[in-house]
């Protein structure tokens, strides 16, 4: 119990927070790009699973985790194109197709894995991405280890947050992009190609969600098993709402979830007398708690979830 205030304990806790928040952050950003263009994509979990499989598969075949990440991104786009075509072109209900992706993609991933690797009593291991410490900065006590000793994907994920902020708030392109999620008709009348931008949104969403999945199987652990995503896509979905559709808020949400999850695992180890279900609830309880206080006002894009028909009045 005396370890609670130990500096190493805090360092390890924060390190674990950053690690656990990363996949959620990447995928939440994917959803942010999608919803800002008016497309609610609840198929994140499915895209992640497929990204996790193809990332792992390519990493296993080539021995290069970076190619795995690339494969994850490409397969993310491919899967998300089904969603894009049906919701943008055919104007289908977004929730239904998101759910369809959630059923379809993991089943396809599971099928491919079984065909390729068969049924073995141990999991196949591929190469794990190596951490690349940032020189000088990683020498800072505590913070250096916590923030500057990770795989490049982690740096990119955190860098994406300010970049996304700048894109959405400071560039004309970003404002145009946001207009599509707010009021597509007005955007169209101002000469913005709504359809094209919506497809671009789906491509970005597919890339990031695919990378989020591939990160799990190439940079976090080096194996794939069915269910490895473990609902992280849904948590990312809630992180977007929680973060009120702003990149900074999304970052905070992902970090809060990572922190409470890392904390509950450590509390379990420290107090074996407490029923683990109680501690496992902490991340979800704190999310509920924060949502109850900060998430009441509707802040999302106005045309979010609505199909857009060019000719309709």
């Amino acid at each position: 119990m005396e370890t609670v205030f130990d500096i190493i304990f805090i360092q390890e806790l924060l390190l674990s927070t950053v690690r656990m928040a990363t996949p959620i952050l990447i995928v939440a950003l994917a959803e942010l790009y999608s919803e800002r263009a008016g497309l609610v994509n609840i198929g994140l979990d499915g895209i992640m699973t497929f990204g996790a499989l193809s990332g792992f598969l390519i990493c296993y075949i080539t021995g290069n985790p970076y190619l795995g990440i690339l494969a994850g991104a490409i397969s993310g786009i491919l899967i998300n194109m089904i969603y894009a075509f049906c919701t943008i072109h055919l104007g289908a209900e977004q929730i239904v197709y998101g759910m369809a992706i959630n059923i379809f993609a993991p089943a396809l991933a599971s099928f491919i894995y079984k065909i390729y690797f068969g049924i073995s009593s141990t999991l196949v291991q591929a190469t794990l991405m190596k951490t690349v410490p940032i020189p000088i900065l990683n020498k800072i006590p505590v913070l250096g280890v916590v923030f500057f000793n990770h795989t490049p994907i982690v740096y990119i994920a955190y860098l994406l947050v300010p970049l996304t902020y700048v894109f959405f708030s400071k560039t004309k392109l970003g404002l145009n992009y946001k207009a599509i999620g707010e009021f597509p008709k007005a955007a169209e009348s101002m000469g913005i190609n709504v359809m094209l931008n919506k497809y671009i949104a789906c491509i970005i969403c597919g890339i990031l969600a695919g990378i989020g999945g591939a990160y799990l199987t190439t940079a976090y652990i080096s194996t794939y098993s069915d269910g490895v995503v473990a609902g992280r896509g849904f948590i990312a979905l809630s992180a977007v709402i929680f973060g009120r559709w702003m990149p900074g808020g999304v970052l905070l949400a992902a970090l809060l979830f990572g922190f409470t999850d890392a904390l509950q695992l450590r509390l379990q180890v420290m107090s074996s007398g407490t029923p683990y279900q109680l501690l496992a609830m902490i991340p979800y309880l704190s999310t509920l708690f924060v949502l109850a206080f900060f998430g009441i006002k509707k802040a999302g894009p106005k045309a979010n979830g609505k199909p857009y028909f060019r000719e309709e009045r």
Binding site: E12, S16, Y220, G227, V228, A230, A262, L265, V269
Partner: peptide, 22 residues
């Protein structure tokens, strides 16, 4: 510790990591 899952290998890694370091 309990992972609350039989498939979340990432969580297994976190648990083992924390048990070793702490």
């Amino acid at each position: 510790a309990y992972a609350g899952s039989f498939s979340d290998s990432a969580k297994g890694k976190e648990i083992a990591d924390s048990m070793v370091t702490m």
